[in-house]
Design a protein around this nucleic acid. Structure first.
Lengths: 128, 128
DNA sequence: ATTCATATGTTAGTTTTTATAACATTGAAT
DNA sequence: ATTCAATGTTATAAAAACTAACATATGAAT
C-alpha cells in the first residue's frame, strides 16, 4: 500500500476540511465546481476528502492570498503534472486527474476490504 | 509536530471508522462506553476519531476474533502503558489515557490554528 | 460612472448522518 | 432455565451537509 495511495484515501467530512484549511464550505464547493479538487462522495452524496485534497485546498488558499485568481490557479494546477503508471504505460497527467484516479482506486480498495479482507490489520494500511 | 501528535488528531466521522474497521456503530459506541476508546466530540456532539482510535478498534476486533471478551481486552489495554512527557515529569499511563491526552492537545492545537496560524501550510503539519 | 464578471456570503428547504435510549436477541456459562 | 455480555434493532431528535437560488462586494473593462 503506497503512501500516495494512502494520501488519496477519502476520509474527512467537509467540516474537518473547513477547520484544517480555514476555508468556508462555500469556497470548498466552489473550487470543486471548478474542478480544482474532486472529492469522493459517500453513498448518501456527502463529500469525503483525502489528505491530497487538503493539500490542494491549502495551496489554493496560498495562491489566492498571493492575489492569483481562479484562472491562474487552474493554470498552475494544470501545469504541474505527474506520472501515473498503469499496467502497460506511464501516463503524464495533471495533479487533479491523478488525484481522482488514485481516489477511485482507493475506493475500490475500500470496497474490497469491506467484504473480503476481513482479518487484515489496517494499521499496516495506515501507517502514517 | 510529532507523529504521535498527528495520529491523535480527531478527523474521521463514525461512518468512515465503520468502513475502515468493519465494525458496526453499535459496537464502536459500546467500546467507547467501556472506555477502550475516547473519541473526541465535535461542537454538535458527533464523535470524531483519530488514527489511534482506528488502531485501537482494529486491535479490539482482533482480540474479539481470538475469543477474548471485553474484560480481557480491557486488561490488555490497561497493561500496555506508554510514557507521556510533561514539563516536569515522565508519566507512565495506559494507551487509552495517553490517547485521550494527546487528543486533548491536538484539539487545542486545532483551535490555535483556527485563529492565529493563518498563513501556515498544514501539509507540514500533516506529512504522512 | 456604469457595467460586468468573479468570488464569496446567505438563506431556504431537503436529505443524510449521527446521537441517545430503550427494548430485543443470541450464545455461553452457571 | 436463568443470567449476563455483546450486539442488533427501532424510534426519535438533532446536527451536518446537500443543492439551488439570490445577494453582495470587489475589481476590471467600457
Amino acid at each position: 500500500m503506497s503512501r500516495e495511495f494512502r494520501r488519496a484515501m477519502p476520509l474527512l467530512p467537509i467540516s474537518m476540511v473547513m477547520q484544517l484549511t480555514d476555508l468556508t464550505a462555500r469556497q470548498i464547493r466552489y473550487y470543486e465546481e471548478h474542478e480544482l479538487i474532486v472529492p469522493a462522495r459517500s453513498e448518501g452524496n456527502r463529500r469525503m476528502f483525502s489528505l491530497d485534497d487538503i493539500d490542494a485546498l491549502l495551496e489554493i488558499r496560498e495562491l489566492l492570498d498571493q492575489g492569483i485568481n481562479m484562472a491562474g490557479i487552474k493554470k498552475v494546477f494544470a501545469m504541474r503534472t505527474k506520472d501515473y503508471v498503469t499496467n502497460t504505460d506511464i501516463v503524464r497527467m495533471s495533479d487533479t486527474e491523478l488525484r481522482a484516479i488514485l481516489r477511485e482506486e482507493m475506493q475500490q480498495a475500500q470496497r474490497m476490504q469491506k467484504t473480503s479482507l476481513r482479518q487484515g490489520d489496517l494499521s499496516r494500511f495506515f501507517q502514517f
